[in-house]
């Protein structure tokens, strides 16, 4: 098992190397000279070049790429073009906001999505199933940023319940977290429902019912445990989607997190900061995927055999 985790962790390295190269290459072709942007038009060439050397953005594409990859490997994401502070420390200040938002968002989405999914699968074609299914489809069809705007319109402008921007108190957090969570919960609801419907038709559910097991126990004990296996994958995928969605939600609610940092950085042509933000989000996504894969073995013991060494398996046999 440990061997498997280490192996998977090592496999993250080439992926991150690839992500670094891709993002670096895309932004290498971005218009605008960061040195001119930072120092202003009409700055003498010598000063511009000195700035480029200081920021590590002098030289050819290959030179810069190699230097950047080397720095990233040492945990250095370069200097922010405007503030001239390390991107890593600027990101560190913003991680808590984004992570708080995404974590509560995924908790909300999972609880809501799994609950509604169970309700509508166990009462297939009933009134509540129809409502939940149609509602989830609408949830999936609404762009996240529009959900955020509508929440502001209803709860901030109309009822004046929650403030429309900021992230300093629980009251501030409710709307952004809901805006992130609602759409994701719709996705989770849809996959819980279809997976649950699949499981409910299995023989062992009939067996459980025929031996007189309570319906609640059949659903929660027998069906849900098996139905959750594909849902966990969906939740893992949705968590990375949520980190990306935070880019939009943070701009709407003016939350000082990684997403807003990235958008501001693009507008200021601060590409070191953009690269750093994308890398951080991609890295978090990779680690989450790994965590989901490991979690699988706990939910689905059948998979444990994969991680057993050949010798061990023979002994068991």
């Amino acid at each position: 098992m440990l061997k498997y985790i280490v192996k998977r962790l090592l496999m993250v390295i080439p992926v991150l190397l690839g992500v670094t190269i891709i993002i670096f290459t895309i932004l290498y072709f971005a218009p605008g000279d960061p040195a001119v942007m930072a120092l202003g038009e009409g700055t003498p060439e010598a000063a511009l070049e000195a700035y480029r050397v200081e920021m590590g953005i002098n030289g050819t594409y290959i030179e810069r790429l190699v230097r950047y990859v080397g720095n990233v490997a040492r945990g250095d994401l370069g200097l922010s073009f405007q503030s001239r502070k390390p991107v890593v420390s600027e990101l560190m200040q913003r991680i808590p906001q984004t992570l708080t938002m995404a974590t509560w968002g995924i908790i909300l989405a999972t609880v809501l999505g799994v609950f509604l999914g169970i309700v509508s699968a166990t009462r297939q074609y009933s009134f509540w199933d129809t409502i939940a299914t149609i509602g989830a489809l609408f949830g999936v069809s609404m762009p996240m940023f529009w959900q955020g705007l509508m929440l502001i319109l209803i709860f901030s402008v109309h009822f004046n319940f929650f403030p429309a921007s900021g992230f300093s108190s629980v009251k501030h957090m409710i709307m952004p977290i809901s805006a992130l969570g609602i759409q994701i919960s719709a996705n989770i609801m849809r996959s819980t429902r279809s997976s649950m419907l699949d499981v409910l038709r299995q023989d062992y559910i009939r067996t459980a019912r025929s031996k007189g097991q309570k319906e609640s126990r059949v659903i929660m004990g027998h069906a849900l445990k098996n139905a959750m296996i594909p849902v966990v994958t969906v939740i893992g995928v949705q968590f990375s989607k949520m980190l990306a969605g935070s880019v939009i939600i943070e701009s709407i609610f003016s939350i000082p997190g990684i997403g807003k940092y990235m958008i501001d950085a693009i507008n200021a042509r601060n590409y070191a900061a953009v690269q750093g933000s994308v890398l951080l989000i991609a890295f978090t996504g990779c680690i989450l995927n790994l965590a989901v894969d490991i979690m699988y073995t706990f939910i689905d013991p059948r998979l444990k055999t994969i991680f057993e060494t050949k010798r061990h398996r023979k002994k068991v046999a």
């Binding site: 992500v19 891709i22 932004l27 072709f29 218009p31 990306a244 994308v278 989000i281």
Partner: peptide, 16 residues
Amino acid sequence: AIPDMLLAIAIAASLG
């Protein structure tokens, strides 16, 4: 590994 929204933003930022 790069969420599609971020990839699209990066490409759009680079292309204009």
